[in-house]
């Protein structure tokens, strides 16, 4: 009895050692990958805090500014922005405001409209329901993104170029993938609450607003997050339609134009940091919802 125990123990210990070593290797790989991912942030932040003079007089990369850190580049962006001549407030701030209202308006309406369609597909009975749903899903197979540039002709014909309409209006009609996702979610909900509400005399629209939306907040939040990030970072749309008027520039457009104006990399890096910070704060606050939002999608897929 004791002989077998002593024989087992070293083998177990050896196995434990192996597991510990494996875990250490995994940890090291994850750490190295983190360094690879965050090195650009370090470089950008450090450079944005280096004075333009030190940067200009240096012959190689500056790992840490010898003259100490300075916020001059940030000041420059808010005081010497040449577009202020037209926009009166710094173009990065105006760009942020423009981005926020354009994105939030589109995302909220789009979510509401998509949810409404998903609710009808899931809970209402009407002729051709499943056929229309197949059609809606089939639109996802069409790579409309390839047609972004030729769409310019269409909006130019409507007289919408140079206005925010091409950025906002198409989004107000809802999106196929959101409808698909929300329908899956609604399908899993039991109909009891809806039947009870019907008995209370609630109409179909009231049921959507008062029952479906409150009961599906997680699904809406997941969709909101990704639509919002997509809208916030959208570049090609504003570039095509809003380029001519700095007063309508979005944050990304202002950022790309400013980097063409400021020649110092300290200023460029500062501009990038300013543009990144709002969304990074948003992510830091809601990171759990981001991860859950994608995970729900993975489960459905």
């Amino acid at each position: 009895m004791s002989a077998t125990e002593t024989a087992v123990l070293p083998a177990k210990r050896r196995k434990n050692k192996k597991v510990v070593a494996l875990r250490a290797v995994i940890f090291a790989v994850l750490l190295l990958y983190t360094i690879f991912l965050f090195a650009p942030f370090y470089v950008t932040i450090i450079t944005s805090l280096t004075s333009v003079e030190e940067l200009n007089s240096s012959v190689s990369f500056i790992w840490w500014p010898k003259e100490g850190i300075t916020f001059d580049s940030y000041k420059t962006l808010f005081t010497e922005d040449p577009f202020m001549y037209i926009t009166t407030i710094p173009s990065l701030i105006l760009g942020f405001i423009n981005t926020m209202w354009m994105t939030l308006l589109t995302v909220f309406v789009s979510l509401f409209v998509s949810g409404l369609a998903a609710y009808s597909y899931s809970k209402l009975r009407f002729k051709g329901r499943e056929k229309l749903f197949m059609l809606q899903v089939a639109t996802m197979m069409i790579p409309t993104a390839a047609m972004t540039m030729p769409s310019f002709l269409f909006y130019d014909y409507l007289g919408w170029t140079g206005t925010v309409l091409p950025i906002i209006i198409p989004g107000l009609f809802g999106g196929a993938s959101t409808i698909f996702f929300l329908r899956m979610y609604f399908d899993q909900m039991s109909n009891d609450t809806i039947e009870a509400a019907k008995l209370d005399g609630l109409g179909v629209f009231s049921i959507y607003v008062k029952i479906m939306i409150p009961l599906s907040i997680p699904a809406f939040v997941a969709q909101f997050i990704f639509s919002f990030v997509g809208g916030y970072n959208n570049y090609m749309g504003p570039l095509l339609y809003l380029y001519d008027d700095p007063n309508m520039w979005t944050l990304q457009l202002a950022l790309s134009e400013l980097t063409g104006v400021f020649s110092s990399n300290a200023d460029k890096c500062a501009a990038a940091v300013i543009a990144l910070v709002p969304l990074l704060i948003f992510y830091a606050c809601l990171q759990k919802l981001f991860i859950e939002g994608i995970s729900v999608g993975a489960g459905k897929e």
Binding site: F126, P150, L153
Partner: peptide, 29 residues
């Protein structure tokens, strides 16, 4: 009938949006 009409209209909105803002540009190009 009312419910069916409501359902039909709400699911047609995104499809109409697709035809107008994706379909027309594709045809024009």
């Amino acid at each position: 009938n009312k419910e069916a009409a409501f359902g039909l209209i709400t699911v047609l909105i995104p499809l109409i949006g697709f035809v107008v803002f994706s379909g027309f540009p594709i045809v024009i190009s």
